[in-house]
Amino acid sequence: MGKQFVSMSHQHIEFIEQQQLFFVATAAAQGKVNVSPKGMDSFRVLNSQQVLWLNLTGSGNETAAHVQQLPRMTVMFCAFQGKPLILRLYGQATAIHRADEAWQDYISMFPAQAGARQIFLLEIEMVQGSCGLSVPFFDFVGPRDELSSWAEKQGERGIEQYWAKKNQRSLDGVATHIVDLSKPAT
């Protein structure tokens, strides 16, 4: 049976800082549920009740669409090495876009990354730890660099064009607000 907490403990934060992979789950009131694996150096703990993660350009933009309709989000970590543990962070998320004033407050916390499209701030309402006894062992070999290489080759203008073409709407047709289409891409 899982144990529930109102905030992250020091042990939870240490566990998170050791992880190379996390999963993000969101859903609007209607439509598809989205679960996305995330990696790279894209997660930050601000304090025991707030975390940030940097969302990079991908083939879809479901999380942004969902959060703007219904801000609930679950972030999950699981131990692939050492003592078994599944750690879930439940809360309310805010999508911070590049044009938002708060973007400048947070982007410097991450390494420069071509294709950075949103930062999500999660206000944690509950933390749950569970056993993870059936999660298999895996060894971390290293990060993939294909996404970074692709984004760098596109350049900023190419990334904005990709967002306008591929990231404006969710699978259910909900606007993501990734770019203002009334302005030409720069």
Results as ranks from 00 to 15, higher is better:
S148N: 11
L121H: 10
G142P: 15
L89W: 05
S148V: 08
P143E: 11
M73E: 14
K183L: 13
M73C: 15
P71C: 11
G58T: 13
A164F: 01
Q118N: 14
L56M: 11
H177G: 01
Q168M: 14
D105R: 07
N167M: 05
R144N: 11
A99T: 01
F77T: 14
A116E: 04
Y106F: 14
I124T: 03
R144P: 01
T74P: 08
C78H: 08
G132V: 15
S42V: 00
T63D: 02
K38C: 04
I96R: 07
Q81H: 04
V179A: 08
Y90Q: 11
Q69Y: 02
A79D: 06
E123Q: 12
A27H: 06
Q11D: 12
M40K: 04
Y106S: 10
K32P: 00
Q30G: 03
A164R: 12
A95V: 15
R88F: 04
D180H: 05
F120D: 07
I119C: 13
V174W: 03
S36G: 08
K83G: 12
F15I: 10
E156G: 06
S134D: 04
S59T: 09
K165M: 04
L122Q: 11
A175V: 00
A93P: 01
E160T: 01
R169H: 07
K32H: 13
D145A: 02
A102Y: 06
R98Q: 12
I96M: 13
I16D: 10
R169D: 12
L181C: 08
V67I: 15
A175G: 11
Q168C: 06
R44L: 03
Q19F: 03
G2F: 07
P184A: 15
E125G: 15
P71I: 01
E101Y: 00
S59I: 03
Q18N: 07
L54P: 10
E17K: 00
Y90M: 12
V6I: 13
